[in-house]
Amino acid sequence: MLYHAEVTIELKSGMLDPEGTTIKRALEHLGYQTKKVSTAKKYTIQLDSNSADIARQKVDEMCQKIIANPIIHNYTIELREA
């Protein structure tokens, strides 16, 4: 079965997010007041697997080993059959 995973990587709370802060300021110049703007990166990964559980576990391993840096990032995984 082919699975489609969407991995979202965000900075942990408390980490500086200069890009988010700059975008927030630009929004203010355009007249939009926001409470907070944060940046995130999204990766889409397609993989073959016998089950959704195994596919999720594999993607989680990938996140821990390379896609995220657990010191500064949180990540979420959304998985569906492709």
Partner: peptide, 10 residues
């Protein structure tokens, strides 16, 4: 230890 994140002023 630690990580090198994007500069405060990016």
């Amino acid at each position: 230890d630690g990580a090198l994140a994007t500069n405060r002023y990016p």
